Simulated assay, not measured.
Amino acid sequence: MKRFLPIFLFFLISVQLFAQKKEFEKELYVGVGGGALMSSVDFMPNVLQKQHLGIHGGISAKYITEKHLGLLLELNYAQRGWTEDFPAESGFSYTKTLNYLEIPFMTHVYFGKKVRFVINAGPQLGFLLGSSQNMNDALAADIAAKKQQNPDAPIGMQYSLEPRKFDYGLIGGIGMELKTGVGNIELEGRYYFGLGDVFESRKSKEDFYFNRSAHRIIEAKLTYYYRIW
């Protein structure tokens, strides 16, 4: 019996070592990143627009909890808004910029080892920090003249309504991540689908209102991640 004891102990140690090798090693990263975005607002009644260019960026934390799966939390600043598309002969121009603090909370899916294909998706909250607008003199004079003719007409309501302070929606993206000895670099394209409205919808039929005024955003983002453990 004693001569089988070393074999039995060796077997137990081998099983333990094998189990440790098979155990998944979790990963925690902190990151900083940013990029450019193109935004518009899905108005109903419709407002003709061009793509509105802005920037976005912030900090992030990524926790890989399982093989091919993790969580991603970010805190970002973003310049959203819309730029109206007028006929060239009108001489009008108008741009509205809305600055937001964004908090996306996403599921992170990846495939690969040193080079990873990544998918991120989840809900996002937004808090309005401030806004600004740029209206040229020609458009301002035209609106003033029309209001003088008919003060009760719902003219240019998107210029005078106050935007809501809170926004929410869904965000998703795909990209590639490169693991290096000094950190990871991730390049990603994202799309944000706003579920909340920029302006409060009015329920009275006598009032002019936007039934919908939700953000639509396309983003490109480059992020550097540093592994904590």
Rank of each mutant, 00 (worst) to 15 (best):
S60D: 14
S90E: 07
L9E: 15
H52D: 14
I59K: 06
I13A: 14
K62T: 10
I7K: 11
L12R: 05
L17N: 14
S93D: 15
K22Q: 11
V30T: 07
L9Y: 07
V15R: 08
L98D: 05
I7H: 12
F10S: 12
A61F: 06
A61Y: 04
P87W: 05
G91L: 10
Y29C: 03
V30R: 06
L101Q: 05
N76L: 12
E23T: 02
P45T: 02
R80C: 01
E66T: 11
G33S: 05
M38V: 09
P104H: 09
N76R: 09
Y29M: 02
P87C: 02
M44Y: 13
V41K: 07
I103R: 09
T97D: 15
Q79R: 04
G34S: 04
K62F: 01
I103S: 09
E84S: 12
H68F: 04
F8T: 13
G31T: 03
L73Q: 07
L28Y: 05
K62H: 03
S93Q: 13
L101F: 15
V32S: 13
P45N: 07
S93K: 12
L75R: 01
L73D: 10
G81L: 00
L101G: 12
E23C: 00
Q16W: 13
L9G: 07
E74K: 10
N99E: 13
T95G: 08
N46A: 12
H52A: 11
F86G: 09
L69P: 00
L73N: 12
K22R: 12
S39V: 04
P45Y: 02
E27F: 11
Q20K: 12
L101D: 06
L28I: 09
G57T: 01
Y77C: 01
S90K: 02
K96M: 07
Y29K: 06
H56Q: 15
G54K: 01
E25I: 08
M38H: 06
G81H: 00
L5E: 15
Y77M: 01
